[in-house]
Write a protein that binds this DNA or RNA. Structure first.
Lengths: 121, 121
DNA sequence: CCTGTAGTCAACCATGTGGTTGAATACGGT
DNA sequence: ACCGTATTCAACCACATGGTTGACTACAGG
């Protein structure tokens, strides 16, 4: 437990049932019983899933009579997309750069530190 | 055991060490020992992490003498971003629509039944 | 051929997680 | 006040996961 935010979000979405719940909540808020209905698990199990999603900041639950309408909080998605995009871009960038290096092959004046080619002193 | 691809990817990235490995691989390919060096866990533990990343399709390992250079496969990221974007967009869309409904609300008398297009008689 | 280096496999342990059942709590309706 | 409905809490179980140690395989090179 007590992992960082990003871990909690990724972890929360690593479960198919929870992803499905998120998908359904994207359409409309719902109560725990409504959410539990389609699956053949107990409502308690769904309650636990919702707790996980809530801890990840993916959903919020408000009180409305004895019902607890569950609401999707889509902002957290940004946390993930930012992380993903960052490294994907970096990987692409690197790919492109490698391409350039292979294409050019000059005397270099390359700012890449680990360029320890068996260069003469 | 996280049968589907999406679950495996999310699950793989739910671990901080594995995310860190991905981050480092975005910069450059690396061997298992190189990857293990910064962390104070055994190289076997890292080997296991790499297996998880590989099963998720996030990295690939090639054979090169006795070394196994690990390479980031960034395409899988798309799988996640597509999923995320889909539901975020849906949630935003719905949010916008709800806004319209609230804005059009005459007085109160909230109807329990779903989306009655405000047809004020 | 033998040794050192890189990596994986296997067995094991502690803890986390998804599921269950059963009891408790919080309200609304009558 | 009481009952039923909605939801959570608690204890428990099976199994996955991250970590360990120790043995094993694969290969380069003296």
């Amino acid at each position: 437990m007590a992992a960082d935010a990003l871990s909690r979000v990724f972890s929360a979405l690593a479960d198919p049932t929870r992803r499905d719940i998120v998908a359904r909540l994207a359409v409309a808020d719902a109560t725990v019983n409504e959410l539990a209905e389609p699956y053949d698990v107990t409502v308690q199990a769904i309650s636990k899933h919702l707790r996980v999603l809530e801890d990840a900041g993916l959903v919020s639950r408000s009180r409305e009579a004895q019902r607890r309408p569950v609401h999707l909080e889509a902002e957290v998605f940004d946390l993930m997309t930012r992380w993903i995009e960052r490294y994907r871009r970096q990987a692409e960038e690197r790919y492109r750069r490698l391409d350039d290096v292979l294409r050019a092959m000059p005397d270099d004046v390359d700012p890449t530190p680990p360029a320890q080619t068996g260069a003469p002193a």
